[in-house]
């Protein structure tokens, strides 16, 4: 028996909206500790990793580990029927479920929707991601980072991110010209302006802006985002989801061959 009830169903809707341009189908692994999901984009350049802890759910029960193969497109269609204020419950009684039940309830419990989504069996190729001690970590407003990526992608497809003790510089070079945005440490009490740099080692890495713009669809999940980098490592972009878990995106760098 598996049942997970999320009080703020809108979080689940936002997660699916954040990943639907990146991955087509995913395996959600349910265990006693919660839900986890890992999937790569079709080009194997980016990877998304979701972890939702059982104690972030209103109700959570998972008698034995199960894998739920979902089409993101079909999941999206079902979730469109859930109101932003609804609770969302996922449920299945079977051990090898062929479908997953969804219940959407409004606050007054006066409207209850029930859907059943057919499951897919997906060969799960998951990658082992070691816990990395990143040498450059940037915490900043997710809206601000999203804006920087959008603005720079009109000049070039790739951005070079260079960190130093007191600032991070986003540089682009394209046919029309070049540009850079330098953001300094800023302990402002205004969320949108605050920038926290923890730079043990400066890095200079280049990434495709197309993927960063896709990752930034998660901006509605958290007002802050962290960029985690080490030389010759994929960038890890993390959106923490209050009291529930985190949505992480990994992006392989572009390097001069």
């Amino acid at each position: 028996m598996f049942e997970a009830k999320l009080q703020q169903g809108v979080i689940f809707k936002k997660i699916v909206d954040a990943i639907k341009d990146l991955v087509k189908s995913v395996n959600i692994d349910a265990s006693t500790s919660g839900l986890s999901m890992q999937a790569m984009d079709s080009a194997h350049v980016a990877l998304v990793s979701l972890k939702l802890n059982e104690n972030g759910f209103k109700d959570y029960r998972c008698d034995r580990p199960i894998t739920l193969g979902l089409s993101i497109e079909n999941l999206s269609k079902i979730l469109k029927c859930a109101g932003n204020d609804d609770t969302i419950t996922l449920q299945t009684d079977e051990e090898e479920p062929s479908s997953l039940k969804f219940f959407f309830e409004n606050q007054q419990a006066s409207k209850i929707s029930e859907f059943s989504l057919n499951l897919m069996s997906l060969d799960s190729e998951s990658l082992g991601i070691p816990d990395t001690d990143y040498s450059s970590v940037i915490q900043m407003s997710s809206a601000e980072f999203s804006r920087i990526c959008k603005e720079l992608s009109s000049i070039s497809e790739t951005v070079e991110i260079e960190t130093s003790k007191e600032s991070v510089k986003f540089s682009v070079q394209g046919d029309i010209g070049a540009g850079s945005i330098t953001v300094k440490n800023n302990q402002s009490d205004k969320d949108v302006d605050r920038v926290d740099l923890q730079i043990d080692q400066p890095v200079k890495l280049t990434f495709a802006l197309r993927y960063l713009n896709m990752f930034n669809k998660a901006v509605s999940l958290s007002s802050t985002v962290s960029l985690n980098m080490s030389e010759e490592n994929p960038l890890m972009v993390e959106y923490k989801i209050d009291d529930l878990g985190s949505l992480r995106f990994y992006l392989a760098p572009k390097i001069s061959d």
């Binding site: 790569m40 080009a43 194997h44 350049v45 980016a46 990877l47 190729e125 998951s126 990658l127 082992g128 991601i129 070691p130 790739t158 280049t206 495709a208 490592n233 994929p234 990994y250 992006l251 392989a252 760098p253 572009k254 390097i255 001069s256 061959d257």
Partner: peptide, 14 residues
Amino acid sequence: DKAQKEIKSYYESE
């Protein structure tokens, strides 16, 4: 121009 690496060249398949 820089070549795009694959994520799989950084992490082992489990």
